[in-house]
Structures are given as structure tokens and as C-alpha cells.
Lab assay of single mutants.
Amino acid sequence: MEVRTIKVFTTVDNINLHTQVVDMSMTYGQQFGPTYLDGADVTKIKPHNSHEGKTFYVLPNDDTLRVEAFEYYHTTDPSFLGRYMSALNHTKKWKYPQVNGLTSIKWADNNCYLATALLTLQQIELKFNPPALQDAYYRARAGEAANFCALILAYCNKTVGELGDVRETMSYLFQHANLDSCKRVLNVVCKTCGQQQTTLKGVEAVMYMGTLSYEQFKKGVQIPCTCGKQATKYLVQQESPFVMMSAPPAQYELKHGTFTCASEYTGNYQCGHYKHITSKETLYCIDGALLTKSSEYKGPITDVFYKENSYTTTIK
């Protein structure tokens, strides 16, 4: 009895394709271990004539594949690729409408935090270190965002349907971005203890939790000093293409032309909904596939993004 075979390709990165001759009487799992086709788990399936010449994702289970996976995804987590594939199996079914010149995501599976993050990423200057993220990001900007969303979920250790947080998501993504040249110098002034300067680099240099107003941050924000008295913390120097200011959701007025974009969060910790506000020729609110415009805006804002380049204080 002759062994019926077909020729397929296996890959971990969709760049390096490895030619395989597979036995049609055995499952993919018996031949390769966990195997995925377009995100779908085909591990328990036997090869079919229609699979001839198709590319299958496999887990990096030998040295060659491990090197290829690390170079593309910059992670050695053995569960990463499987999590990416199972997320992709959902995100490829989502709709990605162009809204006001940006790629958004039609609401499904509690994905409003991903839509808000995706919209924000198209408006701030950011370059990702893992080629996987950078490639998928370019495709997302062009309207094909399924891979990018699935990668975000995998890097953030999230599953489809789980509630997510924009600030946490951005923080994970910033860790995989090139923020080497970003720098922030802060000064804390206390009447009792004097003053202390701190220099922050990388992710810490672009994120701040405690106030939404970048102007206020430049002037000074009140913080408790270690001595128990009130101290003032203010920005001395900022070198970065953008800054992200966050605070627990509270009524906040966004003035046209003073910011790049913002995240609105309605609801409580267990259950809520994100919308995205962007400042173009007027203010726009993007909620999944829905767009509304207004000249002014007041609502429960939790993150505001500002364009920056270089700032030095005039406070002496």
C-alpha cells in the first residue's frame, strides 16, 4: 500500500517557510505537534488534498525554529505562539472599519479597549522592536488589523473576551517599542525636605499616572512627601515624541487643539466601556464603527496623549 502524501510549508514567522512532505494517514499533531492554519487549530486533523502548498504555523520545537521565533517575536515564552494563534482565530472574524481616516474595530468580545489602543497607536510616533509587531502594525494602518490585535493580546497575556485596560495595554506595548531616546527629568520640591531631581528613561519617561493635564504637570502637581507634608512635583525636561497622561476616570474637559487623542471610560472596574476622542479640525468621538463630532467635550476621561518633541522648564 502506497503512502499518500502532500507537500506543505511549516513556519513560526510566515517569513521562513520549511518544506514538509506530510503523510495523509496521520494527523498534523502526530507529525508536527500543535499546528495552526489561519489561526485555526488543526492539530487533530489529517492532511487533505486542499492543504497542498498551504502554510501551517507550528510551535518552535527545534533550534532553527526557536531562533526564527525569537528573532521575529522577541520572546522565548513557549506558550506565546499558541496564544497568538488562538487569538487570531477570533480577531480574523472582527470587522476593521476605516473611521475618520483611522483603522478602528467594530465592537465584539469586549474589544473596546483594543480599538482605543489601536486608534491611539496610529496617532503617536512609535516604532516597535519585534519585527512581528512592526509588520502587523503597518498592515493594521492599511486596514488589516487582525494579526496586530492578536499579537497585542498575546504580548499582554490576554484572551479574547476578557476586559482590558488601555493604560495597561499601552504599557505592555511600550515595553516592546523603541523608547531608548526618551528621557524625563522631574523635580520634587518640599518646604521641609528641599528639592530632589529624578531622571527617568524609556517607558517611565512617557507615562504618568495622577493627572490628565500635561500643562498642569509642567506647572506642578501636589504629591505627598515622605515627611508627610505636601510637596510639588513638576516637569523639568521632556525628550520624547509623545507623552501619555493618565488618571482614574473623572469628568474632564478636553479643549480642541490642546491634545492629540484621549480615552474615555464609562462604567466601573468590573464592567465598563471605552471610547476614543481625537482632536482634528474639530473633536471626534470614535466608538467602534461609530463616529460623532463636537466642538467641545466633557466626560469621564482616563488617558490623554500629547505630541511632544523637546521641553525644558522655565521655572527657576
Rank of each mutant, 00 (worst) to 15 (best):
V3S: 14
V3I: 14
K7W: 11
F9Q: 14
V12Q: 08
V12C: 07
N16T: 09
T19Q: 10
T19K: 14
D23W: 14
M24A: 12
M26G: 11
M26K: 12
G29I: 03
Q30D: 12
Q30T: 14
P34R: 10
D41G: 09
T43C: 10
I45A: 13
P47D: 02
H48R: 13
Y57N: 08
V58A: 07
D62Q: 08
T64K: 14
R66S: 09
R66G: 10
V67D: 13
A69W: 07
A69H: 08
H74E: 07
T75Q: 09
P78V: 09
S79P: 12
L88Q: 04
N89W: 08
N89F: 13
H90K: 11
K92W: 05
N100W: 04
L102M: 13
S104I: 06
I105H: 05
I105L: 06
D109P: 03
Y113I: 02
L114K: 04
T116I: 03
A117W: 01
T120R: 03
P131L: 04
A132I: 01
L133H: 03
Q134S: 10
D135M: 11
D135R: 09
Y138I: 13
G143N: 05
A146D: 08
N147Q: 13
A150K: 02
L151Q: 03
A154V: 05
T159Q: 11
G161H: 04
R167T: 04
R167V: 00
T169H: 01
H176P: 02
L179G: 01
K183L: 12
R184F: 04
L186W: 13
L186C: 08
G194F: 03
Q196E: 10
Q196V: 10
T199N: 07
G202K: 02
V206L: 04
M209L: 11
F217Q: 02
P224C: 10
T226E: 14
T226N: 13
G228W: 01
G228M: 01
Q230L: 14
A231N: 02
A231C: 08
V236R: 04
E239F: 09
P241K: 12
M244D: 00
S246H: 01
E253A: 13
H256T: 11
T260K: 00
T266K: 10
Y269D: 15
Y269E: 15
Q270S: 11
G272Y: 04
H273K: 00
H276L: 08
S279Y: 02
L290C: 12
L291Y: 10
L291V: 14
T292M: 10
S295E: 08
G299W: 00
I301P: 00
K307V: 12
Y311T: 08
